[in-house]
Write a protein that binds this DNA or RNA. Structure first.
Lengths: 359, 359
DNA sequence: TTGGATTCCGTGTGCGTACACGGAAAAAAA
DNA sequence: TTTTTTTCCGTGTACGCACACGGAATCCAA
């Protein structure tokens, strides 16, 4: 229930002179507000002469429409669709969902409604049908992750045709003419992983990239992380570290065996797992044996292994923040006409055992 | 100059049924909107019976006022004061200022105005006069840092009396009945520093806390960081590290000498500088000599020493973000009546050489 | 039973913008 | 010149809320 809080301004309150309004522009240009409105919204039916006069004045006084009045007049409640893969309670995609829900709550009083659409990320048809449902439901904008690479491209063309703006999360490549691309710089995160993994090692050491792949779907983030990882060591000519790479399909029944085999044959100082499944490696390690591990993301399993000291660093993608910011961007875009940067690169978040309590 | 963007909704646009309005409440309660308004704003002159009936209905339909309509009707441009110490271009306090300026820009179209008040942090009178000026200028709210400890308390009592809400940044202690306290958990950051400093050392090692104090003003953040630092090692009974502490006044003419003396007499593995002046230590180190250094904040000088490898980790307080969030909080508080958490603890941000490019 | 005070509440106006409607003036066609 | 069309622009209403003004109802006392 809503009641007036005590701090609310009363009549006595000092009133600032507000910014220019269309009324003032109209007066200055010797026309009615209707004409000014026509010029602002390019609705035509205004003589060239008058148009230019009004535009000149608008430029001079730096007119910006009053957000409150505008939205009151529009009398429209915006709705934004969030299109993400289905997920279990503690899986990766639950994190951005959490961010979206927070945004929904925060912006509820601004009349914003969030609609959720989920799909099976291993079935292209599922993605298309969820996406098209979002379009049919007349959402004003769309937040999604580029999980299915080419399918997303096809779908986003449909969005463009329907004049539905969208934000891509989880990527920092300017693609598909999105309003914005919000994510983490994968290449740089790979470099950071290399730095953390090799930190303090003054003697030549041996590191492994353990790429636990899943399904046939190529993950470009993982690819760029590995590239960044290598680039770091290429730039360090002071010490000749050894870098190996081992790729195993996550579904492989002999996964644990293969990892253990690798661990016994080579004498490793550190392992980099370039996706969120470092817990699988941690499971395979019976004891710590002083092998440093750097992985990604704060899945519950990863956190548990960090807590007991098996995983040393996790680079957090903050996909909740990505989703939140995506929604915020689109809201500002729709309501206040603010255009965000094409690429928003969230700072790399390094998580250690001591930071764990925050998440 | 403002022009209608192409994506703006037109008449054809699907219209969602909007939330409950006072008009509907009035109809349900069989009274006029004026009466409903009187109940909402507790303006009196409504019979007890009617009041209760209206309140019941409001509770049932979960009424929330339309932010746009409310602010349009209020016809008020809010102004928020930012009260911070004077600073040179690249000094610590320039960072929160940057955040404030960004907020001012972002929220300009919402009619928010930010007024800046600066003071000499070593002159109490300067603080009081700046603060009182902020009050006289009829700011609707106030963002400040608790630099002068007791003086801040006195001043904030004046704010409370004048019914001016405020947010404290740079602290995570719920103090003075602030709308919110936004900062970094100092104790936890000290623990993190300890973790980073001792990371990878399996043999008993020797660490130093180098406390470069400034002026007589006690800094509670520094105190808590050092406490956290010690607490980390107390919890680690696996290895018996040695912790020393050395306090030197920053103004000490023999600062460099004293540091160098310490470095030669003891065989250190790492040094923790619990404030933003780790660059002073770095200056004293002629060569790296494999002493790990953990410090705070991204001053230009610190960044330079991190770039050339002399400083290993910087814990970033993100005071720009603190100021930004402070302003945002207060705006939502004033305009949408949203009450933020009493304490907002920003995640600890670990900066390494590879992350430097982001700042 | 009328005057005045008191209690309670409805109506009207304004906030700045969006957009429909229709009217006047100018230009073109008759 | 008269009629029709086109060009251009002013007016009015709506959006939901805040608040002032003043009207109606009730009650008490004279």
């Amino acid at each position: 229930m809503y009641f007036k809080p005590s701090f609310l301004p009363s009549l006595k309150t000092f009133k600032l002179k507000s910014k220019a309004t269309i009324k003032e522009i109209a007066k200055l240009a010797n026309v009615s507000i209707g004409t000014v409105d026509r010029v602002i919204h390019k609705r035509g039916d205004v003589s060239k002469n008058t148009t230019e006069r009004i535009q000149k004045i608008m430029g001079e006084i730096d007119y910006e429409p009053n957000t409150f009045a505008r939205n009151l007049a529009l009398n429209k409640n915006f709705q934004i669709a969030v299109l993400l893969p289905e997920h279990g309670k503690e899986e990766y995609w639950s994190t951005p969902m959490k961010g979206a829900r927070k945004a929904a709550k925060d912006m509820n009083s601004l009349g914003l409604k969030i609609n959720y659409y989920s799909y099976d990320q291993y079935r292209k048809e599922s993605f298309f049908s969820a996406g098209r449902r979002a379009l049919k439901d007349k959402n004003d904008a769309l937040v999604l992750a580029r999980v299915l690479y080419e399918e997303t491209e096809i779908f986003l063309k449909e969005c463009a045709k329907a004049d539905v703006p969208f934000v891509l999360i989880g990527t920092t490549v300017d693609s598909m003419n999105a309003v914005s691309n919000i994510g983490q710089d994968s290449f740089q995160s790979g470099r950071l992983a290399a730095e953390l993994l090799s930190f303090g090692y003054t003697a030549p050491s041996s590191f492994l990239v353990l790429n636990l792949t899943k399904a046939e779907n190529p993950n470009y983030n993982v690819k760029h992380r590995i590239e960044g990882f290598h680039s770091y060591f290429k730039g360090r000519e002071d010490i000749a570290h050894t870098i190996d790479i081992l790729t195993i399909a996550q579904e492989d029944k002999n996964l644990l065996k293969k990892i253990k085999a690798e661990l016994t044959t080579s004498d490793l100082n550190g392992i980099f797992v370039p996706n969120s499944r470092s817990y699988m490696l941690a499971q395979a390690l019976s004891d710590k044996r002083n092998i440093r591990i750097v992985g990604y993301d704060l899945l519950d399993k990863n956190k548990a292994f960090m807590q007991n000291g098996k995983i040393d660093f996790l680079i957090n993608q903050r996909s909740d923040e990505q989703a939140y910011q995506g929604i915020e961007c689109l809201y500002r875009y729709l309501v206040m006409n603010q255009v965000p940067p094409k690429i928003i690169s969230l700072p790399l978040d390094i998580v250690t055992k001591e930071k764990l309590m925050y998440y």
